[in-house]
Design a protein around this nucleic acid. Structure first.
Lengths: 203, 203, 203, 203
DNA sequence: AATGAATGAGCATTCATTCAT
DNA sequence: GATGAATGAATGCTCATTCAT
């Protein structure tokens, strides 16, 4: 009874693992099968094809990120400003802690994974919506400003994504402290929508 | 003697061309060979293997980006502020214009390309140095400020990289105008180091 | 007891249906199972393996053809000549209407279907007997003539089979009207055993 | 120098052989490779894909049949009647002697071998043209008659094809002498276009 | 300097079949 | 009577690479 779910889970976990270890290009159904100790055919009992397996993984990742962001948002419901900052931090942390998910969620080019149903992207977009909504609240309360909340949310996202992305691919100068880098990146990402603060060093 | 170099050049050029045109995944030695009108075997006379060819290509890409950034830097040698902005713009443009090139340069995980010699990365870092130097000049002239130019340059780079990266993977909401998005992203990337300006929309 | 028979029937009917609809090559146990709404495993409760299912189907086809020919024969019991012509027509129609069925019945090489028991062919031969019998009746009544009814019946059969076969493989010039072709083929097939008639076109 | 041609020939010959031995459905590139003692990959050096290999085989068969029919036609250029009969006989003999070719030439359903370029069929049709031309000559010389030479040629072909086909699949009653059967079949196939002859047994 | 011939390893996927339940 | 889980074998095909010439 639990065995069906078990194997499905093992496939998903192993795939995620192999994905980070060897990359998308070198991943094959056979490799996954070998890693879980089952025949390649068995994978097809749980996933229609390779793409379906990836999509299930992406969905899981999106869902997990969504849950985390939702929790963060709830914890800071009264302060849009604190909420937005916390969301950014959580996003970066999620990426660094879940490299496996993050790569397939945001680094794979979609045209390389054919057959990804368009409506699945809507699910992905919910994560951005949480940020956009913090932004909208902030604007409404007069503590943030933006010409276009949609554009601003995406721009913030881009900065966060670049941060996660460079860290994951280990392309940031190793002499730079990771946390300092992330803090600076988030600060900067938010500076565009927050009012002019007293700039510590500018004094 | 020049013929050896000639063919090597043609291989590199053709590979880059195919890469931009058809993408990384569909690139094969045979395809390259067919495109240059030589046998696949011939490529091995100039490159040890596919990886070596790739690394040579990445090097060239880094070089090309370096050249472009250097040219931009020279054109704005007297104004660090204009220089930095132009560098950012050029970086993004380079990424968008050389999609597949950008991908192998910055998106492929280096440890997955087995034989990529670590020292090649030093070459890659020069690109960041150009930006850091504009930043340093700006600080020196009192038109910019930063606690640590290395960190700030990397943070700016992360924002730019995230921008290019999201665009290339087509993950930005299609209702958002591409150029507006890029402009906003660059504006924001620079806001961290530029002095507080009169915010247009803040009247 | 009747339920066992029921499912067996459904399997046979569905298989025949899929065969006619999608062709021999694309037929699989899983497809059949899906179509009847049972598990693939269930088919093995009623048929030892795929071959056995096939042979049962061929048998049924032979039986069906036999029934049809018998009905035709009965309808023309008093005129051997009309009977023979009607039998020919019915044979060709059967082939064209049951394309895939006809193929497994007459086009598949029996020795390649490993386990096909030789004695099943006796059943197949009854169809030829109906024609041979019409021929014998005709000879007896003095309206047909042949050296050897068995040979003549086979020769007629060969002509009919060739006609069906070429039509099914679409190898007849498309500019030739199908019905005209079939009429001419039957006319000619019978000319060998019918007495010399006034040849219409010889006027 | 001759080795390239050699292997190509061996592939073709072996394929033809396996085709008759095991049938189209069970033929695979690997099986061919194994039979010739080369890797499956090597086959692709000489044939673009499986279909191309089949088509080459079909072409060869058509060409060979064409050559034989042409020779026969030339030998009986002055008597259309003798020519037509000789062509029929040669056609049947070709089929029986070259079972390997015949099956892929005329028994395989074309939709099962996709990608067969339509113009290749023109080549196949030349064989029918030789017969049609004998028929036309006969009509012109007043020794044959037909409403439509194209239809008649196809009808004759159908009868011959049925004869070969039943013989190859061993479906003719074994008690019937093979040569007698073929003679009778040809006699009958021609009776439709030849003038009424003195029927030996009718006397 | 260049190549034609050849290959082993790999790919995603499908299939008929088995077996414990 | 029926099935879910599992698999070994197979399929056509592509690829980077080698090697003798």
């Amino acid at each position: 009874m639990s065995s069906e779910t078990d194997l499905r889970r093992r496939i998903l976990d192993t795939t995620r693992h192999l994905l980070v270890q060897d990359g998308y290009a070198s991943l094959s159904m056979r490799k996954i099968a070998r890693a879980i100790g089952y025949s390649a055919t068995s994978i097809y009992l749980y996933f229609e094809n390779k793409d379906a397996l990836f999509h299930a993984l992406i969905d899981e990742g999106m869902e997990q990120l969504y849950d985390e962001l939702k929790t963060v948002a709830a914890a800071y419901s009264d302060s849009p400003r604190a909420r937005l900052r916390a969301l950014c931090r959580r996003y970066v942390e999620f990426g660094l802690e879940n490299q496996e998910y993050y790569e397939i969620m945001f680094l794979l080019r979609p045209e390389r994974m054919e057959r990804y149903p368009a409506d699945k992207y809507r699910r992905a977009r919910r994560n951005l919506d949480i940020m956009a909504s913090a932004l909208a609240d902030g604007v409404e309360q007069g503590v943030m400003h933006t010409d276009d909340p949609r554009v601003s949310a995406s721009v913030i996202w881009a900065a966060l994504h670049g941060t996660v992305s460079l860290q994951l691919s280990r392309r940031v100068d190793i002499r730079i402290d990771r946390d300092a880098f992330i803090d600076a990146a988030i600060d900067q990402a938010l500076r565009g929508v927050l009012p002019v603060e007293v700039r510590p060093q500018a004094a």
